[in-house]
């Protein structure tokens, strides 16, 4: 009797083949649907739509600008950073690298420094020369928008909450000052 029971259990625990055909049928239908709706190249855009707190701070700053930050981009000499505050103008030039490319690391460092000194300023005015390639301008806008170091934050006053909050945005409001020039 014992021996018979053992045999029965042994028979039940034997391997069995899983029927994968229905699973495969579902996948065959799902894959073409996802292939059609997938975006392999994600196109984004640069604009001034920002989190509400930063947006409010920009609007407040627009009414009464405390300081202005301008970047003059020149293909031969580099980027001239002009900070104007209370009638005083401070100019610093970030030269080109030995290979002739822009020094983005130094630019970011300088912009973080300016932002720490002027946390209420969100606008940066770009003044590129005509021969500057578009991709270089986009890179400069990227450097000005956010701090690369994720531990670097800047204080912003949230009027709704009535307290200071932190943001990693530096100068997200980009204006091309020379567009309307002749």
């Amino acid at each position: 009797m014992r021996r018979r029971g053992f045999k029965l259990n042994n028979h039940l625990s034997q391997e069995f083949e899983l029927d994968l055909a229905p699973l495969l049928a579902v996948m065959v239908k799902l894959v073409p649907v996802l292939l059609v709706s997938s975006a392999f190249v994600q196109v984004m855009m640069i604009e001034t739509d920002l989190p509400q707190v930063v947006k409010e701070a920009i609007q407040k700053e627009e009414k009464k600008p405390s300081a202005s930050v301008q970047l003059d981009i020149n293909g031969k000499s580099g980027i001239r950073v002009i900070v104007e505050k209370a009638g005083n103008q401070n100019i610093e030039v970030i030269g080109l690298k030995a290979d002739g490319s822009f020094n983005y690391g130094q630019l970011q460092q300088k912009l973080v420094e300016i932002k720490i000194q002027n946390p209420e300023v969100f606008r940066v005015e770009l003044n590129p020369e005509g021969n500057i390639p578009y991709k270089e301008i986009v890179k400069i806008m990227d450097e000005a928008r956010k701090a690369r170091d994720k531990n670097t934050h800047f204080p912003v006053y949230d009027s709704k909450a009535g307290k200071e909050v932190e943001t990693d945005y530096m100068f997200p409001d980009v204006v091309f000052v020379n567009v309307m020039e002749g």
Binding site: G130, N131, I132, P133, Y134, K135, I137, F176, N178, V179
Partner: peptide, 15 residues
Amino acid sequence: ADSSLSYQVIRKVMY
């Protein structure tokens, strides 16, 4: 816009 284009061409479109 193509990334290799110069700012003076982009500026014309913006203007």
